[in-house]
Design a protein around this nucleic acid. Structure first.
Ligand SMILES: [Zn+2]
Ligand SMILES: [Zn+2]
Ligand SMILES: [Zn+2]
Ligand SMILES: [Zn+2]
Lengths: 149, 149
DNA sequence: CTTGACCCTATAGTCACTTCAGGGTCGATG
DNA sequence: CATCGACCCTGAAGTGACTATAGGGTCAAG
């Protein structure tokens, strides 16, 4: 008794936490197949769309790029292939996320050092933050490197 | 004796670690002022450009959006204003980075859980990863929610 | 019959660049 | 003098993953 409850695009969006425009966008780039239409040209979605879109959104929420989503969808449709490729995609994404975390932690440290530089409530002319971000001192010499011995 | 060593766009790029196209782009959106030109219409840069571009690149490397860079450049040009706004910009960016790190750490945990699900070397049909990403079981019932009491 | 929520298409905008197409300039070499 | 390669020029389009806007059509309720 699997009820075939047809869904409008808005209903599908609510069910999957996806904006209507995003669903149409996914259709345009062939992440989602074209649905049937009503007499009034409205899109009509069914169970398979819900499943597929949910899958897509979960991967996106985990930070996978759409290209990886596409690859995963292709793989998922071929039950006889080995699943090693799927595992590899997940590991790649895990490493990517770990790399991003490391990058951001370095940034965070630099920013918090920067944030403690000033705090004087003084004027821009004395701002240590601006000074820290500038190339060198305030005098006219720097890049030209014409400081002969 | 501040030597006025004029620089071509390529030389400026090398000096600041910026691609030539990016420099032209910054000029286009008025992050950098239009430089002088040679008779052959080549851009010619001097010391001030080096300083300004270095400042921009440092901020970008710290993850500030160009809008914040623009704001900071505006402030830096007004020596009499209080530097509190600068401090606030840096703190905002610090919090933004901290938020991103927290988000990514959650993702990392989910991904590493996901990554340990499978590892069977089996077939797609049995892949636990695919299963974990899918909405519910394999049977035809789910979104329709027609499971009456 | 009108209101308002929803839907349609096509197009442009977002961010911070990158890439491309199609040329021009300049110093060195033959 | 021709020509080669490294560099430079402009303007437009492409990237990712949507988001927004303009200008309409559909449909159930009151
Ligand atoms: Zn300050
Ligand atoms: Zn300098
Ligand atoms: Zn698997
Ligand atoms: Zn379902």
């Amino acid at each position: 008794m699997s009820a075939k409850k047809d869904l409008s695009i808005g209903a599908l969006g609510k069910l999957t936490g996806t904006k209507v425009e995003t669903i149409r966008f996914y259709e345009q780039i062939a992440i989602l197949p074209e649905p049937a239409r009503t007499a009034g040209n409205y899109r009509v979605y069914g169970h398979d769309h819900v499943r597929r879109l949910t899958f897509v959104r979960r991967m996106r929420d985990l930070g996978f790029p759409l290209e990886a989503v596409r690859a995963m969808l292709d793989l998922a449709d071929q039950p006889d292939r080995p699943c090693g490729e799927v595992d590899a995609l997940v590991l790649d994404q895990l490493h990517e996320v770990e790399r991003k975390i490391a990058d951001l932690e370095r940034l965070r440290d630099e920013l918090s050092r920067l944030a403690t530089q000033c705090r004087t409530g003084g004027r821009m002319a004395d701002c240590r933050i601006i000074e820290s971000l500038s190339p060198h001192g305030e005098d006219g010499r720097c890049c030209s490197s014409t400081r002969s011995g």
